[in-house]
Simulated scan of single mutants.
Amino acid sequence: MSIEVSTKKTRLLLEDPRFRIRPLQQVVSACTGALITACFMTPLDVVKTRLQAQQTTTNKCFLYCNGLMDHLCPCDPNMPTHLKPEKRLNGTIDAFVKIARHEGVGSLWSGLSPTLVSALPSTIVYFVAYEQFKMRALELHYKYLAEVKGSPRGREIPFHIPLLSGVSARICAVTFVSPIELIRTKMQSQKMSYHEMISTVRMVMKTQGFFGLFRGLPPTILRDVPFSGIYWTCYENIKSFFGVEEPTFGFSFMAGAVSGSLAATITTPFDVVKTHEQIEFGEKVLFADKPPANVSNLNIRQRLWSIYRMNGIRGLFAGLGPRLLKVAPACAIMISTFEHSKAFFYHYNIEKHNEAILMANQRVKGV
């Protein structure tokens, strides 16, 4: 049997509704990947954020950690002077050393628990939405080929399907999680009861309006939506190029790392903008005793220009090193775990289907 015939047969089996991965199974696969990725990647996000945050004029230190998601938390302003890190972090390795030395190794995992709180629902929405969007788009594409063009299914997934599916899934995920991020940011700054949390929501809506809950959403979309489109397009095309329908753990790991690195490099300036904007919002609103009625709202172009004017091209790509060190393995771990879990459930579904047929045959023979 040729490779092409084998690949076509595998694709037909994967798309068979009887064996198709169920949404709940996709949820479990996404959660598994999110847990593993967050535990490994949080330290690199802490370093990336510190390198970006030191460009701002705020007199507080914020950790903008996102093992898979984003949040802010302030350093203790009453920290003794001898425990405070030096003013400047000179690169990734220097940041690791200084943070661990002055704040303890555990600080490299600052915010891991709250990261997981928002990472899990976001990852579920993102990966399940991507799988559903891709499946529906492929069904329409194959229907179009059969009815309009009268041609058989192609071997490769069309370029636009992973691109549009990735973009649509990321928009759903970041919009869903954005209000949760700001609420959790305030909760991280101090212990809060349920009533106080509701009061915080009302305070933000009163001073900033309903859309104040979505502060930072535009730069998040500009960073994450192109990232998602580029990432999934690269990943699916790498699979198609090598004729892989059911990737191994190793293949998914390498393909995810390559795709994630390319997407991260292109979108880093928007990551810097989002860091600056949410740090400013946290300083002036969330962590302020008397939040102002209005907060300066520079548009994205103005923020990019401001960062470029102060720090040049290097400022726009601040934290690129640790971002790549985080994103490449994070994407690799996440997609390989997700694909491996999907493969497990796919074969599980086949096994259960065969068992059902066997039991049905036995009942018929018994009759």
Score class of each variant (00 low, 15 high):
6 S>W: 00
8 K>W: 02
15 E>T: 09
17 P>Y: 01
20 R>A: 11
22 R>I: 07
24 L>N: 09
29 S>R: 00
31 C>R: 00
36 I>Q: 04
36 I>G: 06
38 A>I: 14
41 M>G: 08
46 V>H: 03
50 R>V: 13
56 T>K: 01
58 T>D: 06
65 C>H: 11
69 M>G: 07
70 D>Y: 07
75 C>N: 10
77 P>H: 13
77 P>C: 10
93 I>L: 14
94 D>G: 10
94 D>L: 02
95 A>L: 08
102 H>F: 15
109 W>M: 08
110 S>D: 04
112 L>K: 03
112 L>N: 05
113 S>C: 08
114 P>E: 04
118 S>W: 13
121 P>A: 09
123 T>V: 12
132 Q>G: 03
145 L>D: 01
146 A>M: 11
148 V>D: 09
148 V>P: 02
150 G>P: 04
152 P>L: 06
158 P>A: 03
168 S>I: 05
169 A>K: 02
170 R>C: 11
173 A>S: 14
186 K>Q: 11
192 M>E: 12
192 M>H: 07
196 E>R: 13
196 E>N: 08
201 V>Q: 03
201 V>W: 02
201 V>C: 12
202 R>C: 14
202 R>G: 15
206 K>G: 00
207 T>H: 15
208 Q>L: 09
214 F>T: 01
216 G>E: 02
218 P>D: 05
219 P>M: 04
220 T>D: 08
221 I>V: 15
225 V>D: 01
227 F>Y: 14
231 Y>R: 10
241 F>D: 02
243 G>P: 02
243 G>E: 04
244 V>N: 03
248 T>H: 07
252 S>P: 05
259 S>D: 09
263 A>H: 04
265 T>V: 14
267 T>I: 08
268 T>A: 05
270 F>P: 01
276 H>A: 05
279 I>D: 01
281 F>N: 04
283 E>Q: 14
289 D>Q: 14
310 M>P: 01
315 G>V: 10
317 F>V: 11
317 F>G: 01
318 A>C: 06
326 K>I: 05
329 P>R: 01
333 I>R: 04
336 S>H: 06
339 E>W: 15
341 S>Q: 05
342 K>S: 01
352 K>R: 15
358 L>E: 07
362 Q>M: 11
363 R>S: 13
365 K>S: 05
365 K>P: 00
365 K>A: 10
